[in-house]
Design a protein around this nucleic acid. Structure first.
Lengths: 294, 294
DNA sequence: TAATGCATTTTATAATATAAAATGCAATAG
DNA sequence: CTATTGCATTTTATATTATAAAATGCATTA
């Protein structure tokens, strides 16, 4: 019956806050300031600060609040709390997708069956199913139960996703609102170079996929049109589920990275039309060769 | 605690079924057949048939089931049950959108406040809010409450929707999978002609909007790419909320209808590229924006 | 052979309980 | 005088429960 408490998450985020703002030892930590920064009320902040007090990171004085004991520089350590809500929900989402793709789930399933199978409460399961339904690969039947559609498992729809990307991404670069995000460009270039320098051999499939999707979403994000970004993200989300099961042809990755870097370079030179044309060919190339086995 | 029963909805749908299949008087109505046709189990079908028996539309014989009393032709009348679930949920969705656009809802709202305001249960409200969040114009805050984003109310995002349509719709007509749906084309042509013949003067704003959106979605639907259709529908859904509040310039409608009909004609002649180019200009004209062609 | 009738199982929703989070305000430090 | 704490009160999020509706399995009957 309780709710998953924010306080534990806040301890980590408070440490982040101290680090990124470079706070010094003995400095005062007003709870309202932290609350505002972390978009939360003072209640979970205070609870978190008490946890941090037990960890000797901060110190409390009666009626004066909390003070840093150790400076931002080196002293606080990582407690590593990875229990954020949406992430755990995604776990189940992926589990369902995985099982469906592996043929372990029939076309029609009941809610209780899924609840038992994944050990989820109805509320939680329903949230996930609603999301999946919204993505279009499951459908609620009129009375009870849910029916999986072909969107996830058909080979056809996989390529249809590429068609959408070909239509949207090159166009995004040409929108009047497109503007280079220097920081994001630098980070993307660095990551692509890192992959190119050998990381592509060692990285996991999901890391490779994530790096690729991030790159493309970053580009579309620069167009500052939420509809474009949303549509691309939606396709990638589905694509990730399918692509995860494909054996990656790693020999193609260096070329892909070089092409990515080339797109960044073209854009930085202001050659948007050229970048757009190149991006189109780049996506088409990826869509033609990689084919899901299902 | 009960659920809203399907049986009452089924009475109307059974009558529809009888009509569309032209069943004759005295004909047997096997409940399993009806259940399969309406994607439901026999339970709500039997309940509905008993209601119809009270209405003297059907007659039951022990251990033999139900039989039609009146033929499909004329005898059954319309009880007009409009309580289908998703429709009623949409009502609240629109109410929230309307109030938000009218400035009656602040940037930040709590769930209880909304429950009280609209008289909804938490489950129901949550379903709606989740949907809205997915559409991107509200966001759940870390602790309690929800914050409205700018997507719905900003003038900018309205035009960004048109940018997406310009990128997608003309492209959809050129996809290899595009195939004319004769029936849908005929229906669309008829509707546009009907509007052109004067209905545009009398129709309500929402009727006009719906006719327009349907036309465009039908076109994109012919491309048989669910991602394209989904993206366009998503934009239209938001657009509808905003456009509903704008005074329609009815003098422009006849031109719009003629252009729609022209697009149908071009496609029927097999001139897809021409239709695509024309569609692009058509959408740009409506949104009063200019987007560079790829 | 196929459909019904009925008992059993499963599902959808509202109501409830409870811990967590937000909030308002008097008390207090500087 | 201003800003912040401390604490009591209000509000919210989730799991659990209750119940009527829907689905299902099977013996019975036309």
């Amino acid at each position: 019956m309780p709710r998953p408490n924010l306080a534990t998450q806040m301890t980590a985020r408070i440490l982040d806050y101290i680090r990124t703002n470079g706070l010094q030892a003995e400095q005062h930590l007003p709870s309202q300031t932290l609350a505002d920064a972390l978009r939360v009320s003072r209640a979970p902040i205070n609870a978190a600060l008490q946890i941090l007090e037990d960890m000797k990171v901060v110190r409390s004085e009666p009626n004066r609040g909390f003070f840093l004991v150790k400076g931002a520089g080196e002293l606080p350590d990582l407690p590593d709390v990875e229990d954020t809500e949406p992430e755990r929900e995604d776990e189940w989402y992926f589990a369902i997708a995985e099982d469906r793709l592996a043929g372990k789930l029939p076309d029609k399933v009941s809610e209780n069956e899924l609840m038992r199978r994944y050990g989820l409460s109805r509320t939680r399961l329903l949230k996930i199913l609603t999301k999946i339904a919204d993505e279009g690969w499951i459908e609620r039947l009129p009375g009870n139960g849910w029916a999986f559609g072909p969107l996830l498992t058909s080979r056809e729809s996989y390529q249809q996703g590429y068609q959408l990307r070909v239509a949207l991404e090159p166009q995004a670069l040409l929108l009047p609102s497109f503007e280079i995000d220097r920081g994001a460009f630098a980070a993307a270039r660095e990551q692509q170079q890192w992959l190119l320098d050998g990381a592509y051999k060692r990285a996991s499939r999901s890391e490779i996929f994530a790096a690729n999707a991030e790159f493309h979403e970053m580009l579309v994000g620069c167009a500052r049109n939420p509809f474009f970004l949303d549509a691309v993200k939606r396709v990638n989300r589905l694509r990730r589920l399918v692509e995860y099961r494909i054996t990656v042809d790693r020999s193609r990755l260096p070329l892909q990275c070089r092409e990515h870097i080339n797109i960044l370079t073209l854009l930085e030179k202001g050659l948007r039309q050229e970048a757009s044309d190149f991006l189109r060919v780049h996506i088409e190339g990826a869509g033609l060769i990689k084919v899901p086995k299902v």
